[in-house]
């Protein structure tokens, strides 16, 4: 047998090359997720749920049990699986359209109930599968199909800050972080911590990953990297927003 690609063990080899566009950030986020699953050795216990949008193209991506649902419903479906079989490790994977726009109520409710699941959200600043329309995370001045002159914050608001919102309403034990595909080692670490948080049963785990969409941004490779590193990092701060044991921060309850 010849030298084979260095794929994570949890990747399904017979479905590669995967269905994402050239240069898509989903491949990189799922590579980090696969490495995190490999390092923890939990392939036989993971249930992977993908949402609608480009993220559904990962339905045959992993050698893991996979469910595909619609419009942010991945979070409640994973919640149900976790409640029925608490020994399983449930990962809900979605895009910013499913998680922050049409399915934000499920995300908010799950955080509010402190469900012991892991949510991984890919933020590529637009609805990529339908052709690049404006999403809640679109940057001010960014041109999309529905904002041809650039997004006007006076009319449509500023980019949606997901991890900030989740950390504001999350209870003690939650893990909230934002990583980026331009720093994959950090992103793998966040995903691993989020999975460990679920395994330990502390509470809700949420990781947003800044992703790339060269097809709808209409960027070449160098413009893609500069858009992520300069434009996106200017609006979305990476880092850990809430870790178990850090308390409630500024909104600590009187005890």
């Amino acid at each position: 047998m010849q030298l084979q690609p260095a794929m994570p063990r949890s990747w399904r080899v017979d479905t590669k090359p995967h269905k994402f566009c050239p240069g898509c950030g989903h491949g990189l986020i799922l590579k980090c997720l696969g490495q995190a699953v490999d390092e923890l050795g939990i392939e036989d216990r993971v249930v992977y749920g993908c949402d609608i949008g480009c993220s559904l193209l990962s339905w045959d991506f992993f050698n893991l049990d996979t469910v595909q649902t619609h419009h942010g419903r991945t979070t409640p479906v994973m919640t149900g699986i976790k409640r029925a079989r608490p020994e399983l490790i449930c990962i809900a994977y979605m895009g910013d359209g499913g998680g922050y726009s049409i399915g934000v109520q499920h995300l908010v409710s799950s955080v509010h109930r402190n469900e012991k699941i892991t949510v991984v959200l890919a933020n590529n600043t637009q609805y990529a599968m339908t052709g690049g329309q404006m999403a809640p995370t679109t940057l001010p001045g960014q041109k999309t199909e529905t904002t041809p002159y650039g997004r006007d914050p006076e009319v449509t608001g500023f980019p949606f800050q997901g991890p900030e919102m989740v950390s504001a309403i999350a209870r003690e034990g939650a893990y909230v972080a934002r990583g980026s595909i331009s720093n994959m080692r950090q992103l793998t670490g966040y995903l691993k911590k989020a999975l460990v948080n679920q395994i330990e049963g502390n509470g809700f785990s949420f990781v947003e990953a800044l992703s790339a969409c060269p097809t709808n941004w209409r960027t070449n490779a160098s413009e893609t990297w500069s858009f992520i590193d300069k434009e996106m990092h200017g609006h979305f701060k990476t880092g850990e927003f809430k870790t178990p044991g850090s308390g409630q921060g500024e909104v600590r309850a009187d005890e």
């Binding site: 030298l3 690609p5 260095a6 794929m7 990747w11 590669k16 090359p17 995967h18 994402f20 240069g23 898509c24 950030g25 989903h26 491949g27 990189l28 590579k31 994959m184």
Partner: peptide, 9 residues
Amino acid sequence: NICPDCALR
């Protein structure tokens, strides 16, 4: 590390 398709080794 950076290849989204694991095409490089």
